[in-house]
């Protein structure tokens, strides 16, 4: 477990129609890390996920309608900046990520290992069967990221990440994708001067796949290729305001 933080830490969980898992998840985080605040961004759920999160003890911010997983995270970053949080650690609301591992991110952030810490299931482990197509896609984007950053990035699609205020500022002043904030975030972060590192995490089976609906695999690959390419071209325009 982690020592008592002197800093303000926000655990951010974006949800979209995840009422089945969110309450237990929030309760578990609260139980493990009573000193941290939990913010759930309800991205226009229609299944009462916001109420479930509130019952679990989280603060809840509601989008009036579904904007996308990237937009939901970005709302959380805005919240964290305005409420003076030092670190944000975000995980998916579908139970894939283990709250126990939040402390790994916090420790890495405290040691100032990087501005963005990405939890990698390929450095750690995953306890479910990854569909073959998905695995190939992940490998492709891992190669693209590794090429852009000139060092190995194993899991660019991971939704388990931690960051400091520097990263939050860049993600709220400049570009942050509205949908699928995956490989292009890593590449654009690199070009915008953020330090990125991966840490091993354990990823379990998802209890839902709502946040990633709305796009087919082909659309995802097209969008990611275009945005990773564009990310590497436009970094200079997105420098944060001093």
């Amino acid at each position: 477990m982690t020592e008592k933080p002197k800093e303000k830490v926000l655990v951010l969980i974006p949800v979209y129609n995840e009422s089945r898992s969110i309450r237990n998840l929030v309760a578990e985080v609260k139980n493990l890390y009573p000193e941290m605040d939990i913010l759930v961004i309800d991205d226009g759920s229609r299944d009462g996920a916001a109420d479930e999160a509130r019952r679990g003890g989280a603060r809840v911010v509601n989008h009036a309608f579904n904007l996308g997983d990237g937009a939901a995270r970005q709302t959380g970053f805005l919240y964290a900046l305005r409420h003076d949080y030092d670190y944000v650690i975000h995980l998916d609301g579908d139970g894939q990520h283990s709250p126990r591992e939040i402390s790994l991110f916090l420790n890495a952030l405290r040691r100032d290992e990087a501005d963005l810490i990405v939890g990698s299931r390929f450095l750690g482990r995953y306890t479910y069967q990854l569909p073959r197509m998905k695995k190939i896609g992940m490998k492709l984007f891992s190669l693209i990221c590794s090429f852009a950053l000139r060092r190995r990035i194993t899991d660019p699609t991971s939704g388990f990440r931690g960051m400091n205020r520097r990263a939050m500022e860049i993600y709220t002043h400049g570009y942050y994708p509205q949908h699928f904030p995956d490989a292009d975030v890593i590449i654009s972060s690199h070009f915008r001067g953020l330090r990125i590192t991966e840490i091993p995490v354990t990823v379990g089976a998802t209890q839902s796949n709502n946040l990633h609906q709305g796009g087919t695999v082909i659309y995802y690959i097209y969008k990611m290729l275009l945005s990773t390419f564009v990310s590497s071209l436009r970094f200079s325009r997105d420098k944060p305001n001093p």
Binding site: I41, R54, A58, A64, A71
Partner: peptide, 14 residues
């Protein structure tokens, strides 16, 4: 706008 509205209407924890 949706993000700003959501943050303005933020609920207190129960």
């Amino acid at each position: 706008l949706t993000q700003e509205l959501a943050l303005k209407k933020e609920d207190p924890p129960e």
